[in-house]
């Protein structure tokens, strides 16, 4: 029996590989210098969905909310084997916290049609909150299983799952439909398929084209104006439309989202303050790396009753 899966994925700055170049002189992170990547655990979620489809049949749809540049994540999803992809983008979604994000995603999921399983990564590496999955499940009135390691079987309308719990593991069985969040150790995401890469790499959306045109004009040393951008982007957009290379894009109106529940307005949490981690200057004493130096250190630690 086939099962339809919807995968929730997010494009994130690659916080795991923050190097010296990515730090500004004042010690803060230069986000622009960080490459945007497919959130790692969302890739595990997509892999799990593709495995379900390969085993039982059905369709895999990837939904992402983000700026037009997130088209890249959708193209990658297509290279990996997703059947359908949707970009949820709108300036009105900006500054959304996890509650507003899960509301927008739940509206999009309702519009996307019939599904059996919704999957997402356990958490995203930029915020590490792990909240959007359970919050989306609640908004859709679905049961949830978080920290999923493995789908054992789907039978008689029920799914059997292995998951991590604190200090151990658990095997659970729950009826469909439901939402799963998937850990990074669940599987090894497959590589891109070359044929699909060639097929989908020129897929794009109007907003992404306009963004690229804007950068191009800036690179030429000119100030981009809206009419300039529109004029240059038009033939490119027309060509993409004619060739069927446009990705599905939904804005707040397309998913019938209520204005006061999205973006900053729909977000109860507010960032009061951001501090870069600055190494606190401690009263560091250098110890000579020789017998005498080390001996003096041990003596001091013993005298201060730090070691017995």
């Amino acid at each position: 029996m086939p099962y339809n899966c919807i995968v929730l994925a997010k494009q994130v700055p690659d916080t795991k590989n923050i190097t010296g170049q990515a730090m500004k002189d004042d010690g803060t992170v230069n986000r622009a210098a960080l490459p945007a990547i497919f959130n790692p655990e969302d890739l595990n979620a997509l892999e799990m969905a593709l495995e379900i489809r390969d085993r039982f049949g059905g369709k895999v749809t990837v939904i992402t909310m983000g700026p037009p540049a997130a088209c890249e994540l959708l193209r990658e999803s297509l290279y990996l084997g997703a059947d359908d992809v949707v970009l949820l983008t709108d300036r009105r979604f900006a500054a959304a916290d996890t509650l507003a994000t899960s509301y927008a995603l739940s509206c999009a999921i309702r519009k996307a049609g019939k599904f059996d399983i919704i999957l997402g990564g356990r958490q995203a590496i930029d915020g590490d909150t792990a909240q959007v999955g359970p919050q989306s499940a609640e908004k859709l009135g679905l049961n949830q299983v978080t920290y999923v390691e493995k789908v054992r079987d789907i039978r008689d309308g029920k799914i059997e799952i292995e998951r991590t719990i604190d200090g151990g593991s658990e095997v659970v069985r729950a009826p469909l439909p439901l939402l799963l969040t998937v850990t990074g150790t669940a599987n090894e995401p497959r590589p891109f398929r070359t044929k699909r890469l060639l097929q989908y790499r020129s897929f794009t959306c109007a907003a992404e084209i306009m963004g690229k045109v804007r950068k191009q004009i800036e690179a030429e040393g000119k100030t981009p104006t809206d009419p300039d951008i529109a004029a240059r982007a038009k033939p490119l957009i027309d060509a993409a439309t004619a060739e069927g290379r446009l990705l599905k894009v939904w804005d707040a109106d397309a998913i019938a989202a209520e204005a006061d529940k999205i973006g900053g307005r729909g977000s109860p949490t507010k960032v009061k303050k951001i501090e870069s981690i600055v190494l606190k200057g401690s009263d560091l004493a250098w110890i000579e790396p020789n017998e005498e130096g080390v001996k003096a250190l041990v003596k001091e630690l013993v005298e201060e009753h730090i070691i017995g």
Partner: peptide, 9 residues
Amino acid sequence: FGGNIIATI
């Protein structure tokens, strides 16, 4: 942000 900033919410 991967532990690079401390945020007060």
